[in-house]
C-alpha cells in the first residue's frame, strides 16, 4: 500500500487549526462568563500563555507509570476522535482525515477511552479528591452515553449507514435536509446529552472548581497539565464537530465549520452561565428521564 503523505499533511494542518480554534473558544467562553459577572475578563491570548507556562515549568514529580499514561491516554482519546472523523466534506476530500465506513462506532468508543485512561492515571495520583471526581465523572458519563447512543442508533437506522461522511452527504441540498428537521427527536435527545458531555454547569460536578478542588486532575501539574489542556482544546472542537456532522449538515469550508462549532459549543456555555450546578444523583437521573425517553421515541419512529 502506498503511503499518502499529502493526506497526512492535511490531517496535521487540520489538527493545528482545530487546536488553535479550541484555545480561542475557551478564551471567548471565559470572556463571556466574565462579562456576565460584569468583569472585563482575561486577555484573549491567555489560554496560549497558560499552555506555554505549563510546558515551561521546570520540575515534575510522578506517582507511577499509570500517572504518566493517564494524560497520554486522554490525549490519544481526543486526537483519535479527530483522526477518524471527517472535518470538512469538500470535492477534493482533503479534510476527511482517516474516516472510513463504520467510523461512527469507533467515535462512540473513543469518547469513553480518554475518560477510562484518565481514571486509571488520576487514581494512581492517590488524592482523595481525584477519586471522588473520577467516580462522579464515570457515573455521569455512563448516563450521558445512553441517550447519545440511542440518538446515534436512530440516525443509523434513518440513513442506513454507520459512516459519518455518508450521513453528512445525505443531508446536503438545503437546510431542510438536515437531521435537525428530518429527525428532530433524536436531535433534541443528543443536544441535551451534549450539555453533559461538554461538562459546563449544570453538569460540571466532575471538576467542581470550588468544592473538590478540580476533581480528577488535582495532582496533575506542569507538562502533564499542559497535555490535558491541549487535549481539552482539541476535544471541545471535535465534540462540536461530531454534532455538526450528525445533525447540522456538516461543513464544506472552514468558515462554515467555525460558525457551526461555535454555535454548538456555546449552546452549552450559555446554558451553563444561567443555571447552577446539579448534584451527581440529580444529574444522572436527569439524563435517564427526558433525554432517554426522547432517544427511545427517536428509535421507535424509524423502526
Amino acid at each position: 500500500m502506498e503511503f499518502d503523505f499529502k493526506k497526512l499533511g492535511f490531517t496535521l494542518l487540520g489538527l493545528l487549526i482545530v487546536l488553535n480554534w479550541g484555545l480561542l473558544m475557551s478564551a471567548i467562553m471565559r470572556k463571556i462568563n466574565a462579562r456576565v459577572a460584569k468583569r472585563y475578563g482575561i486577555p484573549w491570548y491567555q489560554p496560549w500563555v497558560d499552555l506555554v507556562k505549563n510546558y515551561a515549568i521546570r520540575s515534575q514529580i510522578t506517582h507511577g507509570i499509570m500517572f504518566y499514561l493517564g494524560p497520554v491516554f486522554r490525549f490519544s482519546g481526543g486526537v483519535g476522535l479527530f483522526l477518524f472523523m471527517p472535518m470538512l466534506i469538500t470535492a477534493g476530500g482533503q479534510w476527511t482525515n482517516y474516516s472510513f465506513q463504520g467510523d461512527l462506532v469507533l467515535i462512540l468508543y473513543f469518547q469513553f477511552f480518554g475518560m477510562l485512561g484518565m481514571a486509571l492515571g488520576a487514581g494512581e495520583g492517590g488524592h482523595p479528591y481525584s477519586a471522588i471526581g473520577i467516580s462522579r465523572g464515570l457515573s455521569q458519563f455512563t448516563a450521558i452515553e445512553v441517550p447519545m447512543t440511542l440518538a446515534v442508533i436512530s440516525l443509523a437506522i434513518q440513513y442506513q449507514t454507520l459512516s459519518i461522511a455518508d450521513i453528512v452527504k445525505a443531508q446536503q441540498g438545503g437546510i431542510m435536509n438536515w437531521t435537525m428537521w428530518t429527525n428532530p427527536v433524536a436531535t433534541i435527545a443528543a443536544m441535551l446529552s451534549l450539555l453533559g458531555a461538554l461538562a459546563h454547569a449544570p453538569f460540571n460536578l466532575v471538576r467542581a472548581p470550588n468544592e473538590i478542588p478540580i476533581g480528577p486532575p488535582t495532582e496533575y501539574h506542569s507538562t502533564f497539565l499542559g497535555v490535558l489542556q491541549t487535549n481539552a482544546a482539541v476535544l471541545h472542537v471535535v465534540e462540536a464537530a461530531l454534532f455538526m456532522n450528525l445533525f447540522f449538515g456538516g461543513a464544506s469550508n472552514w468558515f462554515e465549520f467555525i460558525v457551526k462549532t461555535f454555535l454548538i459549543y456555546f449552546w452549552s456555555v450559555f446554558v451553563g452561565t444561567v443555571f447552577p450546578r446539579y448534584r451527581i444523583e440529580h444529574s444522572v437521573s436527569w439524563f435517564l428521564k427526558v433525554p432517554l425517553v426522547l432517544g427511545i421515541i427517536a428509535i421507535i419512529i424509524f423502526m
Binding site: A34, A37, K38, R39, Y40, G41, I42, P43, Q46, V49
Partner: peptide, 9 residues
C-alpha cells in the same frame, strides 16, 4: 468586578 485581577493574567 471592582479590581478584576484576571486582566493581568
Amino acid at each position: 468586578p471592582r479590581f478584576d485581577a484576571f486582566r493581568f493574567g
